[in-house]
Design a protein around this nucleic acid. Structure first.
Length: 533
DNA sequence: TTAATGTCAT
């Protein structure tokens, strides 16, 4: 039966299963895992139910992990919970295999609270349980928790492995914790984890997101047997660094190497086209997807709408949305509204707002965009109504925060923050630098104070936006040759973008700022995004 | 016969 499963012949296995007269636990777990291996989790679960109902067979430490994995694959939290209950009932929740797989299932369904509860109550934990929990936090963007747990794992003397590292390195990349990420990469090399494994792509991405495209290339070039993840990671690295030419070259090289692009590959390429304003090329790659037998997903459509919208082809973007075979997602509308804002098409934007609000509640981010669209079109009543709706639901925009890594510490700043121990020096540095910047031709553009709706932009705080405080702190404490990496949870405002260009010029430093939607590497008065953002 | 990983983006 396993023989057939490995050959991807689940129905042959099924036939054999039916014919076998004595069904042991092994027989049952084999048939369930056979369907899982062949990506038929629903069929797997059907057999799981059949076993419980007709055979009077109790699941064991082999069968439970199969069942939970099927739930995880289907993102079926409810059924996963019943499997968990059953495991408790028949006394298998203490088993390390069963426990770990339940943790993994909850984490994959996005329920970290349940995952953590099971994890904390496990009588015995091993590297799989720990890695699963860390992965869960990383997956949901809970970077701090992921790192905390990793530290706990080391404290417990756990021997971590490449599974653990791939999650931790990913967290470092996402939060621009370059120093830590570099250490982790070093550790992987020391423990001789193969870079061709999953660690490789995470390392490439981490270097890229920290502004070190050279480091990303080094890892990429050193490995001769590159997997698809590494190609994709390198593609997006070039795209993030606005090196569109290399993106196209890499894509060609990839095809020549016989590597088949997947849906993520096309997201990378479309992302590159949209941020470089290359409409013709974008359309070319979008239609190429069909040749590779890949159906464009909503994310690909969002990318295309972004591309067309930024280029001012708003009607064409709208037409593409109408043609979508699925419901347009929030990112698709968001992309269209961004295009409308850039090109001042208030009419289309406000009609989009009418349409989207009719469909039902939207996320706070999109809600703000939509109410701004009304305001821009002069429909102030609707704008006020939309804002009130948001307020009534108690949804607030996130507080703008920037952070910077220094030694083993992460220093976090909010706009106008005076709480940092070096506050006095930071503000003095900003004053001093401000004078240099003005001499170099910088003029503060206070219009952003009025344009941007949000907590940070009130009154005179523009001079002290969180990213500026973080940069000033780094200027004071970092050695002169060290690039400054700042991460921000909101979008950098237009004035800060200009200001940081001047900062890089006046100080001769490389300043890398990652905000929630773009990547900026400032060097000698220029930004890698080419002001196209 | 057992369990877990990466690469996109919002």
């Amino acid at each position: 039966m396993n023989f057939y499963a490995k050959l991807e012949l689940p129905y042959c296995s099924e036939q054999m299963f039916r014919e076998s007269q004595f069904k042991s636990s092994t027989t049952w777990s084999s048939i369930i895992s056979c369907f899982i291996q062949n990506e038929l989790p629903l069929r797997g679960l059907e057999y799981f139910k059949l076993m419980l109902r007709n055979d009077g067979m109790f699941p064991d430490d082999y069968i439970f992990p199969c069942a939970t994995k099927a739930c995880a694959m289907m993102n079926d939290y409810c059924f996963g919970q019943s499997v968990h209950c059953l495991a408790v009932k028949v006394g298998f929740e203490g088993n390390v295999f069963v426990g770990s797989s339940i943790v993994d299932m909850y984490a994959k369904c996005g329920n970290l609270r349940d995952a953590r509860k099971v994890f904390d109550e496990m009588p015995e934990r091993n590297v799989v349980s720990w890695s699963g929990m860390i992965y869960g936090y990383a997956q949901m963007g809970e970077d701090e928790e992921a790192l905390k747990l990793f530290k706990d794992a080391l404290w417990e003397g756990l021997e971590v492995n490449d599974f653990t590292f791939s999650s931790v390195i990913r967290v470092c990349g996402n939060s621009t914790l370059f120093e830590l990420g570099k250490q982790m990469h070093g550790l992987c090399l020391k423990l001789s984890y193969d870079e061709t494994s999953f660690v490789g792509s995470a390392v490439i991405s981490m270097y890229s997101k920290s502004g070190m495209i050279e480091g990303a290339y080094r890892v990429f070039n050193e490995v001769s047997d590159k997997n698809l993840g590494m190609w994709n990671a390198m593609l997006i690295a070039c795209a993030q660094h606005a090196d569109t030419k290399s993106v196209f070259e890499l894509f060609k090289k990839m095809e020549n190497a016989g590597m088949k692009p997947n849906f993520i590959t096309f997201l990378c390429v479309l992302y590159a086209c949209s941020h470089a304003g290359l409409v013709k090329e974008g359309k070319h790659y979008f239609s190429m997807m069909k040749e590779y037998g890949i159906e464009p997903g909503s994310q690909h459509y969002a990318s295309m709408v972004d591309l067309l919208g930024r280029a001012g082809k708003l009607q064409e973007a709208m037409k593409l949305i109408e043609e979508m075979p699925m419901q347009p997602t929030e990112s698709v509308w968001g992309a269209l509204l961004t295009g409308c804002r850039i090109h001042g098409n208030t009419e289309l934007a406000s009609s989009v707002a009418d349409r989207v609000f009719e469909l039902g509640p939207v996320s706070p981010g999109l809600h703000v965009l939509l109410s701004n669209a009304y305001a821009a079109a002069g429909r102030y009543q609707e704008a006020a109504k939309a804002r009130k709706m948001l307020k009534d639901r108690g949804q607030k925009k996130e507080t703008g925060l920037s952070w910077v890594e220094e030694g083993n510490r992460i220093h976090t700043f909010a706009a106008g923050d005076m709480t940092h121990e070096f506050s006095e020096e930071i503000y003095r540095k900003l004053e001093e630098l401000g004078e240099d910047m003005e001499r170099a031709g910088y003029v503060a553009d206070t219009s952003y104070v009025l344009k941007e709706v949000g907590a940070e932009e009130k009154s005179q705080t523009i001079k002290y936006h969180s990213e500026r405080l973080a940069i000033a702190f780094a200027l004071i404490t970092f050695p002169p040759e060290r690039p400054i990496r700042v991460m921000k949870n909101l979008r950098v405002c237009g004035d800060c973008h200009v200001a940081i260009k001047f900062m890089s010029k006046c100080t001769g430093r490389i300043i890398i700022v990652r905000d929630n939607n773009r990547f900026h590497r400032f060097e000698n008065g220029k930004c890698s995004c080419g002001d196209y953002w």
